[in-house]
């Protein structure tokens, strides 16, 4: 009688059960599962509209939505709206990043700078950005500026706080090591703090980009004649539910693309972490 029954333990590890707590499942299974939820979703949706369970005017089937999307893109110049929206997101997000990243790093590094800005930034974080729409319209008219300003306000204060928090999380031993190697204050910021926090800043940017898309739709629905949101508001007037849903789909797809792009960039730029 052996001390350890290898047979039994072998059986344990190869048992093919799908629902084992925290046990890995085959990669292919995981992909199939991920796809199947979408098949179920679209299947149920199509079934509901084909069998007349729902009002076809209010809930068009997925095939109708795809047809509407095709028509929008190829016959009604929807690509122009999409480009407008992307441009607004990218420009305002870059502006917010340009301010938030340096300020967040400084606030996370120097208590004096944190004490100066944090009460201000925290207060603004709690003000809902859309509440500024009326005043932004009064100040900036109806051009691009009020939309960019809304997206900027909606994102920048959260981004500052996240960058600050990540900067504070840098382990003190890293800074102390550099100090005992002779680093002065500027060298600490340049050669330790910035490279140490950069991967986390990318994560913060990825998260806040999703929020920018949310504010984009609000801005375009409330005060715009171009862009994805504006198209959706026009469609509402003519009860074109399929077009509204096509807009939602495009926003979802764009969000996903941006997210994948950021993930890809993170892996490329910070390969040493993987």
């Amino acid at each position: 009688m052996p001390f350890l029954s290898t047979k039994a333990s072998y059986k344990m590890t190869t048992r093919k059960k799908l629902l084992e707590i925290r046990k890995p499942i085959p990669r292919l299974t995981s992909i199939y599962l991920g796809i199947s939820i979408w098949i179920i979703f679209f299947g149920t949706w199509q079934l509901a509209s084909s069998l007349g369970w729902v009002n076809a005017l209010l809930v068009p089937g997925p095939l109708d939505v795809i047809e509407a999307l095709r028509e929008l893109i190829f016959e009604r110049g929807f690509i122009g709206d999409i480009i407008d929206s992307i441009w607004r997101v990218v420009i305002s997000f870059l502006l917010a990043t340009a301010l938030a990243v340096p300020l967040g790093i400084l606030m996370g590094s120097f208590h004096a700078i944190e004490s100066l800005f944090n009460p201000f930034v925290s207060a603004w974080r709690y003000l809902p950005a859309p509440s500024f729409i009326p005043v932004l319209l009064m100040w900036f008219g109806t051009g691009e500026t009020p939309k960019l300003a809304l997206l900027f306000i909606g994102v920048v204060f959260f981004l500052i706080t996240m960058v600050m928090d990540y900067t504070k999380k840098i382990r003190v031993e890293l800074l102390e090591t550099a100090e005992t190697l002779g680093a002065n204050r500027n060298q600490l910021v340049r050669t330790v703090i910035i490279p140490a926090v950069l991967p986390d800043i990318f994560i913060a940017m990825r998260q806040m980009l999703a929020v920018t898309w949310t504010y984009l739709v609000i801005a375009e629905i409330v005060a715009s004649t171009t862009g994805i949101g504006a198209m959706m508001m026009r469609a509402r007037r003519f009860l074109h539910t399929d077009e509204i849903m096509a807009g939602i789909m495009i926003i979802g797809a764009l969000g996903l693309l941006f997210d994948l792009f950021f993930r890809y960039l993170h892996r490329k730029l910070f390969a040493y972490l993987y």
Binding site: R171, L174, E176, T177, E179, T180, L181, A196, L198, L273
Partner: peptide
């Protein structure tokens, strides 16, 4: 009166710069 390169320190926790 402060850290200097003439007195280098090695810590218990890992301090390699991972980048």
């Amino acid at each position: 009166d402060g850290p200097a390169r003439t007195r280098g320190m090695v810590f218990q926790s890992y301090t390699s710069f991972e980048w």
